[in-house]
Amino acid sequence: MSLNKLISNLAIAEQTAQGTPATAPTYIVPLVGSGAVAGVSPTVTIDEETGQTYAINAYVEEVATGFDAPTRAYPPVLGLLLKGLLGTVKTTAAGDTGGLYKHVFTVSPTDMATPWCTIWGNMESDEVKTTDAKVGAIKISFEGNKPLEIATTYAALGASFGADAARPKGGTEMAGMKYLTPNGCEVSLDVAGASLEARKITKFELEMSRNVNPEYFSGSPLPGDLSMGKFEGKTTITVKPSNLDDFRKSITGKADGTTVLGDVVEGAFKVKVKQGDASLEIEASRVPFAVNWPESDAGGGAVELELAADNLLGTYEAGPITITLTNDVASY
Rank of each mutant, 00 (worst) to 15 (best):
K5R: 15
S8Y: 07
A11H: 05
A13C: 06
I28T: 07
A36G: 08
G51A: 09
N57P: 03
Y59L: 11
E61N: 13
A64K: 05
D68L: 15
A69R: 02
P70G: 04
A73Q: 02
G84M: 05
T88P: 13
T91Y: 04
G99D: 09
V104I: 13
D111L: 03
A113T: 15
W120M: 06
G121N: 10
N122A: 06
M123N: 15
V128R: 05
V128G: 08
G136Q: 11
K139D: 15
I140Q: 12
L148D: 02
A151P: 10
A159E: 09
P168E: 09
G171K: 00
M174V: 12
Y179F: 13
L189C: 02
E197N: 00
E197V: 13
E197Y: 03
E205Q: 12
S209G: 09
S209R: 03
N213W: 05
S218N: 13
G219H: 06
S220R: 08
G229W: 00
G229E: 10
I237P: 06
V239F: 02
K249R: 14
S250W: 04
T252N: 12
K254I: 08
A255D: 03
A268S: 11
V271P: 01
V291A: 11
S296R: 07
G299I: 14
I321M: 10
T322S: 04
T324M: 11
L325M: 07
L325W: 03
T326M: 02
S331E: 13
Y332C: 06
